[in-house]
Write a protein that binds this DNA or RNA. Structure first.
Lengths: 106, 106
DNA sequence: TAACTACTTGGCTATTTTGCCAAATAACCA
DNA sequence: TGGTTATTTGGCAAAATAGCCAAGTAGTTA
């Protein structure tokens, strides 16, 4: 793997790693439906607000979501719409895994 | 996040986490072009063979790739073709990030 | 200005992930 | 059988990640 390729893969990994957590995947899924404040997301995720805030920072730094201050609230929304195709691929892997388990039971 | 949703997100996270590493993204990228043995991938990645073997095990356990023994060699290949769309989304995030940096320089 | 709501950040511990070496396993060949 | 190649596994230390609490910041409202 040459230097150029290595840097390209590291750039990709930064994006993928930002999504590699159940709470962050949930957040992305919810933000795909519309923008939400940290308070609402905290309630939905069910963790400490500081934890959710850090998850949001990770997604924002990766460029997956963006924030905007509205009064005392900070609203977050998806920055790149294609994340949904991303999920459809992940789902198809899950489906393939389940199908394989079904085959093994036969 | 209810129990059912939490399990769904954990299932997604297992797949995404399996890809969340530069070497593993490189491996997936190369396997998209055709099947390869561990020895060839080790040479291409440029790490210890034991390290590459562990990366391959992580991808295989997630259901992203599959292996097949051919003589003394173990050939690996992609199990789910959609991983390429996956990348195209990652690339569009990278592109959006770069564009933003360009805007900030203006 | 003080109190309040909404967030973010610092700090700390627990857990997970990485990557190397060494050792074990497996198929093939002399 | 013994040696060789290809690969996996165990073990370990270093690095990265996660999540909570406490403390700090920033608008808002009384």
């Amino acid at each position: 793997m040459d230097e150029k390729t290595r840097m390209k893969m590291e750039a990709r990994a930064r994006i993928v790693k930002a999504m590699a957590h159940p709470s962050r995947l949930f957040i992305v899924d919810e933000l795909a439906k519309g923008e939400l404040c940290v308070c609402k997301l905290t309630e939905m995720v069910g963790a400490d607000m500081s934890t959710v805030s850090k998850h949001l920072a990770i997604l924002r730094e990766a460029g997956i979501i963006q924030s905007e201050k509205q009064g005392t609230k900070v609203m977050y929304k998806l920055r790149v719409p294609c994340v949904l195709n991303f999920f459809s691929c992940v789902e198809s892997v899950i489906l393939a895994n389940v199908n394989e388990q079904v085959e093994m039971l036969k």
